[in-house]
């Protein structure tokens, strides 16, 4: 994977978690489901002692992008994971192909953005086509500095979606 100076890794001796902030779309799945490990208010924001390894892996697998990934520190276990990943990738590719004709999914995240998956087009306010993509998140708190996309500012702004 291409390394960025903002990329971080964290380990508990058993697995190493890789964090690539440039790939994060702020779907908020990680900290909503496992704040004991993924807490954006803390530094470092990942606490590998906050939960058992299998629970951490479960949440990483729910990350909609490659912002959070992991590897086993044990190289034997890692080989198994790589085989599994290859399988997952080919499955994902064939899934993606079959998805071209299924509806786009718009998920409203609690206190967070709209996470969108599928094949869709974004059109600017002047009718100009911005881009076609398959996964993104749109700001719904009104204060992102990267409009119309989410940049995570909702958390600092204290946006709550429950009225």
């Amino acid at each position: 994977m291409a390394m960025d100076s903002n990329d971080r890794d964290y380990t508990n001796g058993e697995i190493t978690v890789f964090w690539q902030p440039s790939k994060c779309i702020h779907a908020t799945t990680c900290y909503r489901e496992l704040i004991e490990v993924f807490n954006p208010r803390n530094r470092p924001w990942v606490n590998m002692d906050g939960a058992p390894t299998d629970r951490i892996i479960e949440i990483i697998n729910k990350c909609p992008t490659d912002a959070l990934t992991y590897r086993w520190n044990d190289s034997e276990k890692n080989k198994l994971l790589e085989n599994l990943n290859d399988e997952k990738i080919s499955q994902a590719l064939s899934y993606e192909k079959s998805q071209t004709d299924t509806p786009v999914m718009v998920q409203v995240m609690k206190d967070g953005p709209y996470v969108v998956q599928g094949n869709f087009t974004i059109i600017g306010s002047t009718g100009n086509k911005l881009k076609s993509m398959s996964m993104t998140s749109f700001c719904r708190c009104g204060v992102s500095n990267n409009m119309p996309f989410c940049d995570g500012t909702h958390r600092k702004a204290g946006f709550t979606s429950e009225k």
């Binding site: 004709d101 786009v104 718009v106 409203v108 995240m109 869709f120 306010s125 429950e162």
Partner: peptide, 24 residues
């Protein structure tokens, strides 16, 4: 199968086409 997200300046997000919406 075409789905469009239209950004209305200083306004809402207009979604049209083939999509499903999931709540919080």
């Amino acid at each position: 199968s075409k789905t469009e997200f239209i950004i209305i300046k200083n306004g809402p997000l207009h979604v049209k086409g083939n999509f499903t919406l999931k709540g919080t």
